Simulated assay, not measured.
Amino acid sequence: MSHARPLTRAILALGSNLGERAGTLQSAVGDLVDRPEMRLHNVSPIVTTKAVGGPGGQPDFLNMVIAVDTTLGPYELLAHCQAVELAHHRTREVRWGARTLDVDIILYGDQTSDDPVLTLPHPRAAGRAFVLYPWSLMDPGATLVGQLVAQLAADAPDMAGIAHVLNAPMEQGS
């Protein structure tokens, strides 16, 4: 008899700057949690942001963060996120290039990893307002690397590029 893994809280960041961005994010959230190992815990509002890094002249991104509870291991979760990206026609031709969907694992419980395939916490998240700001709206008390996410967002160099906030694409879970 196998024992089920306990639920682990993971923070996922979603972004889109190609195609029907809001619809893609809404559909991707549904796809991410549409399996028995995944439960949606909370959803941030959507923010409009300028592209950070990568080629110039990219369209603006819509970005959001979700909290999920999962029995998937971290690498299984990564594979699931990449499968959802692929289902939304994500291509990986240019690093940090324009994309229909990007899903990053920001935190997986309190695990840390230096594996280049899956570094936890996400190695650049603490300096990216496009992740931090929607996360702070979803969970004002959240912390990352021992610091309040809201303060990290305020200090992030791309905070000035956040244009406005849209409503969350779906009701929050419990």
Rank of each mutant, 00 (worst) to 15 (best):
E85N: 11
T71P: 04
A67K: 02
I106S: 09
E93P: 04
I11E: 06
L152Y: 00
E20V: 06
T91H: 11
A160T: 13
D110M: 10
W96M: 09
G23F: 08
L32H: 02
Y133F: 15
S44A: 15
S27K: 09
H122E: 06
A13G: 13
T71F: 00
A125P: 03
W135R: 10
V145P: 01
L18P: 02
N17Y: 08
A83S: 15
G19D: 10
P6I: 04
L78Q: 00
V165E: 12
G30H: 15
Q151K: 14
Y75N: 08
T48C: 12
M64K: 10
D104G: 04
A153H: 03
Q58C: 03
L78E: 03
Q147L: 04
Y133T: 11
D110Q: 14
Q82F: 11
P55H: 05
G109T: 05
L14N: 01
F61H: 00
M170E: 11
R90G: 04
D155V: 02
L18E: 06
V29K: 01
A125W: 00
L132I: 04
G141D: 11
N167Y: 06
T91R: 15
A153E: 00
P169N: 08
W96K: 00
D110L: 06
A168P: 02
L132A: 11
A126P: 06
R35M: 12
M38K: 05
T70D: 12
A160D: 15
L7D: 10
T49Y: 11
P6N: 14
A83K: 14
P59K: 09
G109S: 02
I162D: 10
G173I: 05
P116S: 01
L32G: 03
R99S: 05
G109H: 04
N42I: 07
Y133P: 10
K50W: 05
D114T: 15
S136F: 02
S174P: 02
V29H: 09
N63M: 12
M159P: 10
G146C: 07
S27L: 10
R128L: 04
Y108S: 07
H3Q: 12
G23A: 12
F61Y: 15
S16M: 07
G97M: 00
L18Y: 00
A156S: 14
A163I: 08
P116Q: 08
A79I: 03
L166S: 14
D158F: 05
T70Y: 00
Q58L: 02
P45G: 13
G97S: 10
Q26W: 08
P140K: 05
L62K: 02
M170Y: 07
T48K: 13
D114S: 14
Q172I: 15
L72P: 01
R99N: 10
G73I: 03
L14D: 04
T143Q: 14
C81S: 03
V117S: 03
L137H: 10
R95A: 13
P123Y: 00
T112N: 01
M1Y: 13
R99F: 02
V33A: 12
V65R: 08
G23W: 08
Y133A: 15
M38C: 03
D60C: 10
V145S: 13
Y108A: 00
G57C: 09
P45R: 05
T24G: 05
V84E: 06
L78M: 07
I106A: 02
S113T: 08
V68K: 04
L148C: 09
